[in-house]
Design a protein around this nucleic acid. Structure first.
Length: 448
RNA sequence: GGAGGCAUCGCCUAGUCGGCCUAUGGCGCCCGCCUGCUAAGCGGGAGGGGAUGUUGAAUCCCCACGUGGGUUCGAAUCCCACUGCCUCCGCCA
């Protein structure tokens, strides 16, 4: 039995469902105990992200309000219950007296409960806005303050080869691989058709990526591309990133921007047996992005588009394993780029440029000759327990029941990989060399 | 889309014309005990939150019978809405 198949059968027998509603309500974004015992840790994280530090004080106040209203409700409720029992036994006048007392109490209980619910809701709303805690050793700063931690390969010297590199669109159109004009005719800007060898290239890349992932022990999944709001919110895409997401109001569904969403929500409301962790999944799905904040950026070709397909890795593991798993995901991404013979760098992304759910993020930037620079081609995030708390995904082990950690990483984002292949491996005559690892899947060593 | 049925602890299940439910029993699981070993047997445990407290003690309380409301002094039990699943019909790749 293959690794992938045994992973499947194992998981089918070990799944647990957690249906407790309170657990869902009280699954918070950051660790509740941390808020009380070490609020400064959260303040530092907020500062590193360039987010509100005052939020922590609001949270503490809201938590206090929540607890005191809850206490009030609980003691009233306890009294109500205990009198209720006496009522059942009492007779005559005694019964009438008790009834009178408890009638008034009923209204109080109701009011106290409403107050407690409201305080709870306010607190939960606030908690949802807190991004994940950043690891304290990630580079500080904004978009441009990343640290380049590795550089692999060397950009080709096209001058020495005697010709100027063409950009991917020019190559792709000449090869009949990319049709941008019809993309915009049919669907608008930032849409495209992959045609002929371009379409074949996608299938070849997907098959190569899947073959590698299976070899590495990942279980393959084809996830839905439309998800409920809870899945979107749980993975952290409805906060500041909400404007970048397609929404279908008629059905109250979102189009995912990455299969990470469905892969993370896959085990929502479940308790996983610790013996089945870590779990490695690899998903393939279309990805939809409104690119609302990027008007005018990367408008040329298929670098930044509203729809693309992507092979994505996803990991569930014990929190203490997360850092090591993150390194593994990065290693897999590197192995894939190396198989494609692409020069690239690895970036440790700065605190201010992390998404809502990431504690640390490594991006691989591949070399794009026509742009003359390294640009993002993969991204892997360690979300620690952030998504698991929101999605109520826990594990049972010797220490009881606790949240798992989740991680995600790009294995192959089709358009950006196609661009990198076309541009880096182009020849003077307009043909494109295909890396040895990909040749078996495409059936040719050169496209022309 | 139309009609009907169902929803209790990991799984199965008792309870459903309101208070004795502090939710029954079985299986599986975990920890003890017992025992040449195993099995059996016996005892205990297994959700969330809060308070006092401790640092890996304990005690008390609240919540949890799909979800949310309602009726009532009191709801697993009655009423309403919603969700999910199952069956049948229709439509469809």
């Amino acid at each position: 039995m293959s690794d992938a198949r045994s992973a499947w059968s194992e998981q089918r027998t070990c799944e647990r469902r957690e249906r407790d509603a309170n657990a869902v309500e009280s699954s918070f974004v950051i660790d509740l105990k941390l808020l009380r015992t070490d609020p400064d840790r959260i303040r530092r994280s907020q500062a590193m992200r360039g987010e509100s530090v005052e939020l922590v004080d609001e949270l503490l106040a809201a938590d206090e309000a929540r607890r005191s209203t809850l206490s009030t409700f609980e003691s009233l409720r306890a009294e109500q219950k205990s009198i209720g029992k006496d009522v059942a036994k009492a007779q005559g006048d005694e019964k009438q007296q008790l009834l009178e007392r408890t009638k008034a109490l009923a209204a109080e209980v109701k009011a106290a409960q409403a107050a407690a619910n409201e305080a709870e809701a306010r607190f939960t709303e606030l908690m949802k806005t807190v991004p994940n805690l950043v690891f304290e050793d990630v580079p500080q700063g904004g978009e441009d303050d990343f640290t380049v931690i590795e550089t692999h390969g060397t950009p080709r010297d096209f001058a020495a080869a005697g010709f100027a590199p063409k950009d991917h669109l020019e190559i792709g159109e000449a090869l009949g691989a990319i049709d941008m004009d019809r993309g915009s005719k049919v669907s608008g800007s930032r849409f495209y058709f992959l045609t002929g060898i371009g379409a074949q290239l996608e299938f070849a890349l997907v098959n190569l990526a899947m073959a590698k992932a299976l070899e590495w022990g990942f279980a393959p999944i084809l996830p839905p591309a439309l998800v409920k709001p809870s899945a979107m919110e749980g993975t952290g895409f409805l906060g500041q990133a909400a404007q970048d997401v397609y929404y279908l109001p008629a059905d109250d569904l979102y189009l995912v921007g990455t299969s990470e969403v469905a892969l993370a929500a896959y085990h929502s409301d479940e308790i996983l047996d610790a013996a089945t962790l870590p779990r490695h999944y690899v998903g393939y799905s279309p990805c939809f992005r409104r690119e609302a904040g990027s008007y005018g950026q990367d408008t040329h070709g298929i670098f930044r588009v509203h729809w693309f397909d992507k092979v994505e890795m996803f990991v569930y593991c014990a929190p203490e394993e997360a850092v090591a798993e993150h390194q593994k995901l990065l290693a897999f991404e590197k192995a894939f780029l190396e198989a494609l013979e692409l020069p690239y760098q690895v970036l440790d992304v700065a605190s201010g440029d992390l998404g809502l759910s990431a504690a640390r993020k490594y991006d691989c930037y591949a070399w794009y000759p026509a742009q003359g620079k390294y640009r993002e081609v993969t991204s892997t995030s360690n979300c620690t327990e952030f998504q698991a708390r929101r999605l109520n995904i826990r594990m049972r082990d010797g220490d009881g029941v606790r949240s798992v950690a989740t991680l995600n990483g790009t294995l192959c984002a089709i358009p950006r990989v196609i661009i990198a292949l076309l541009e880096n491996h182009q020849q003077a005559d307009g043909s494109v060399h295909i890396p040895a690892a990909l040749q078996p899947y495409l059936g040719t060593a050169v496209i022309s």
